[in-house]
Amino acid sequence: MAVEQSTVRPSRPFALVLVLAAALVAVDQLTKWWAVSALTGRAPVDVIGDLIQLRLTYNPGAAFSIATGYTWVLTLFAAAGVIAITWFARRVRSRAWAVGLGLMLGGAATHLGDRLLREPGFARGHVVDFIDYGPFVGNVADIALVLGVALLLVLNLRDIPMTGRAPEVEADPTA
């Protein structure tokens, strides 16, 4: 009797999450490399007047420079975020959910990489920010995180499940 060998392959939506996240990490890190090499020691560069500028900063904190003295805690949060998003993403069957989770996973993974590998040291690294839009300075990963969260919020508000199937409506037996 032959034993059937089965190979466990990730679902296509999960593969999309991973590919999108990996691409985002690559783009984010390349743009940060460019920013460090091109903007170090330079005055802000106007892109759209004072509305959008390129200005190199190193952020030891979270959004809006919150918790700047607790970079190691932010590193733990980023690691927990990467683990949680990956765990949830394995169950996704919807392409839209895969895109949202891929954007979030890529953003969280690249921030985790910055925290682990950049100066001033392991688990204390500062995130490279260079896109200055008024009161905020961010990077490609920040934009992806915001877009991913917004997409998942819209999907939730529209009751679109991770499985990609519309919720079944029960027929009213009295009708």
Rank of each mutant, 00 (worst) to 15 (best):
T75K: 08
P167K: 12
W97N: 06
P60V: 05
T174R: 03
G106N: 07
F136E: 04
L103I: 02
N156L: 11
V127D: 14
P60S: 13
V45I: 15
A98S: 10
M162W: 08
I83L: 15
A109I: 02
T40S: 12
L39P: 13
R115D: 14
G134S: 12
G121S: 11
S11Q: 07
L112S: 04
A79Y: 11
Q5N: 11
V137E: 05
L56F: 03
T40C: 07
F77Y: 02
A89R: 03
L112P: 10
G107D: 14
L152F: 07
A26H: 00
W87Q: 01
P10G: 03
G81I: 00
A43Q: 15
S37A: 15
W72K: 01
T31D: 11
A79D: 15
T7F: 10
F122S: 15
L74E: 15
H126S: 15
F88M: 08
T174S: 13
G125I: 01
A63P: 09
P60A: 12
F130D: 11
E119M: 10
A43N: 14
K32F: 06
A141Y: 03
A79M: 12
T57I: 01
Y133V: 05
L30P: 03
I66G: 07
G102A: 00
A108F: 12
L30V: 00
V154K: 05
A80G: 15
A98R: 06
R9T: 13
G121P: 05
L117G: 08
V25C: 05
R91S: 13
L101V: 01
V92Y: 14
L117Q: 04
L153Y: 07
R90Q: 08
V3P: 08
E4L: 05
T75M: 10
L54D: 10
L76Y: 14
H111I: 07
G134C: 10
V3K: 01
R118P: 12
L39W: 04
I66W: 01
V3A: 10
R9Y: 08
D159V: 09
R124I: 06
L151Y: 02
V73P: 10
D132V: 00
I83K: 06
I66N: 08
T110L: 06
Y70Q: 15
D132M: 00
D132F: 00
M162K: 09
I83T: 08
A43V: 13
L51Y: 03
A123Y: 07
G125C: 02
R118C: 11
D129I: 00
A150D: 12
I83A: 14
A108E: 13
F88T: 02
V25E: 02
P60W: 09
A89N: 06
F77T: 05
H111V: 06
L56R: 03
A80P: 05
V169Y: 02
L56W: 03
V73A: 14
A144C: 09
T75L: 11
D132H: 06
A108N: 12
F77G: 11
A15V: 08
